[in-house]
Design a protein around this nucleic acid. Sequence first.
DNA 1: TCCATGTTTCCATTATCGTGGAAATGTCGA
DNA 2: TCGACATTTCCACGATAATGGAAACATGGA
Lengths: 120, 120
Amino acid sequence: METKHAVTALSALAHFSRLAIFRLLVARGPQGIAAGEIGEQLAIPPATLSFHLKELHRAGLVTQRQNGRFVIYAAHFDGIGALVAFLTENCCGGNPCLATKPRSRRAPAKHARRTTSAKA
Amino acid sequence: METKHAVTALSALAHFSRLAIFRLLVARGPQGIAAGEIGEQLAIPPATLSFHLKELHRAGLVTQRQNGRFVIYAAHFDGIGALVAFLTENCCGGNPCLATKPRSRRAPAKHARRTTSAKA
DNA sequence: TCCATGTTTCCATTATCGTGGAAATGTCGA
DNA sequence: TCGACATTTCCACGATAATGGAAACATGGA
């Protein structure tokens, strides 16, 4: 994933309504939800909802499929997975660390040295 | 984590420079980097850099500590961890699913049924 | 074919964010 | 105490995002 794409995905999620939509879809799973039902559950008017869904889709965070007159949206788990991976990529210079193993704090090997003269 | 906080964190990361800063800090690990060095590496002028670092700090994504005249910034791994957890929270209604086990696609139990009459 | 229903596009207004020079603030060493 | 250096605050301008009503665009059923 390149930075530009990651920024798009993060921007898509960085909005109250869109985050709520995404989490609703994540909770529902692959089954998905029709656009109308999303708008109903979250009290978002059609035009606004469509705008937000387009953003999420453009960012690769949701999939959409037509089902008759309905458009079913579902979370795209690979998309969010790739984003998460990107955020923690090359963590601590590639060494095992706090981000991957938050509990094993003893002896953080090579990468936990203080700055050359940091004491405060 | 509440939605409002998550939006703040996502907004903080949803910017080219800030994402670059964050990833630079993630790669460096707990050791952290002085503000000046960040600006140098990413070619961001002091005022702009300070603005972005403040955003990241406000969002709980980086920590800052004073070291003499320098201010050392480091990624706050708990912060990003909480955000990631929030994004996939209650995934597929709490059942094991695609998000947690992307490879086990057979028999996705209760949550992978099609919509009532979805065929397309 | 025509109507009802679901969804998207259009559009103009409002609000918020990003930028970076200059000045202010804080800290160290002499 | 003073000068040098690191970082932050102030500020004003330009750019971009969010909103939602109305109209347009699909689609299925009669």
